[in-house]
Design a protein around this nucleic acid. Structure first.
Lengths: 232, 232
DNA sequence: AACACAATACTCACACTGTCCAGATGGTCG
DNA sequence: CGACCATCTGGACAGTGTGAGTATTGTGTT
């Protein structure tokens, strides 16, 4: 199905087996999740012997890792398309808040729209030596932005608009990421019976709480260390 | 290893194979996650033939589902123990906020302390017909409270203390649950390189943002529907 | 108390998986 | 043209979930 001509140099038998394997893996992962990307099935889809994959990937988890990276790029692309369609309010602060909300909404929307790819990208399988974060760039191997950059951009805009202190950017990253990632995994794993409307209101409510908590004018309390120290 | 005498009536060959299978599955899941609870390995640990399990569970996923339910009970027990050790401030409102924070901290702490059981409880495997939420009670089959009840209790205390409007309880559940579940899955799947100190500060920061967003005095904005309607 | 029944556990079997090892194939370069 | 070497193929092995049929054993009935 998917044909890719070699970029660097002409390869030997197949054309570009490595890319074809990844593409087939993405297709398998799209409907079926990471559990569905099976080595023999991937090889069967491409039309080669099962062991041919071992020339390009040392193990199945390595192939899954490549598929996951590709899925993260796809997620970034989808989030970018979502954000391009957002109409921002005129007020600068409200525009920054809207942008953060829409970044989060795009994150959760992708998880719901492409659960198989989302699960593959976020690697629920701890068997792999995946260790996400090894690639430090802002874009993947196909030049597509990573999902994280949208969140950082949103928080930077909040800082510019005066709604967020620069020193709070780091903790804001964790709080925002946790909120949207938590919503996504909850919808997929824990609350599959929710309707689209219920999901949408839950997204809006959680993001409202997040924005309200982040853009509070007073300084954030620093009681966490004291509380955690008096435990256990 | 684990011996359980039958409660209701003496069983036939093994004693209580069903309970023994679940117990062995919990042990397997504790170190190794849901992927490690393998039917033949469970049967091997108990000392019976592999297919003996099919007399008590129609499929392996059914056994995993029972193990997951047991893991959720274990999680509730651990959270209760954590909360019993919390020293609450005298002020009523601050005590309610502290309680919510500690509920969240207990949730994430269990995920980090027992990643295998947490992953099994929260079922990253969509293959099963698990559908959590079928059991509507507040306690599991062993009388242990479910994790969700602690969150509901915390929000009820916030309402009593006047820090949260009763009408906002529903959305507060989603926001709180998403925050702590997101932190947990992020720590396990996306940020395994974080140290315990970094995890602790991230937990404190995210919970501070959550509490600040929930207990804001003004009414929450209801702009989510309008924004989401202008998209796509 | 002895027997029949049904619940329980076991044996055999099949299709499928990931991965190793040796051999065939065919581009690339001296 | 011939040698090399990356690439792909075939066979094989251990291990998995699950189905069908069979042996075993506790329990209720006569």
């Amino acid at each position: 199905m998917v044909e890719k001509r070699p970029r660097t140099r002409a390869t030997y038998h197949h054309g570009d087996l490595r890319a074809a394997l990844i593409a087939a893996g993405v297709t398998l992962a799209r409907d079926g999740g990471p559990h569905a990307v099976v080595l023999r099935e991937v090889a069967r889809a491409v039309g080669v012997a099962p062991n041919s994959a071992y020339g390009h990937f040392p193990t199945l988890t390595a192939l899954k890792s490549a598929v996951a990276q590709r899925a993260r790029g796809d997620m970034g692309q989808a989030m970018g398309a979502h954000l391009d369609a957002v109409e921002e309010p005129a007020d600068r602060a409200e525009a920054a808040k809207t942008y953060l909300r829409e970044v989060g909404r795009a994150y959760v929307h992708y998880a719901v729209a492409e659960p198989g790819l989302f699960r593959t990208a976020m690697g629920g399988d701890p068997t792999g030596i995946t260790v996400p974060g090894t690639s430090t760039g802002d874009r993947d191997d196909q030049g597509r932005p990573k999902p994280k950059v949208f969140l950082e951009r949103a928080l930077a805009r909040l800082v510019e608009a005066g709604c967020l202190r620069p020193a709070d950017t780091g903790r804001a990253v964790m709080a925002s990421w946790a909120a949207v990632h938590g919503l996504s995994t909850m919808f997929l794993d824990l609350l599959p019976q929710l309707t689209a409307e219920e999901q949408e209101t839950a997204i809006g409510d959680a993001l409202d709480v997040l924005v309200a908590g982040l853009t509070r004018t007073g300084q954030a309390p620093r009681s966490s260390a004291a509380i955690s120290g008096s435990l256990k």
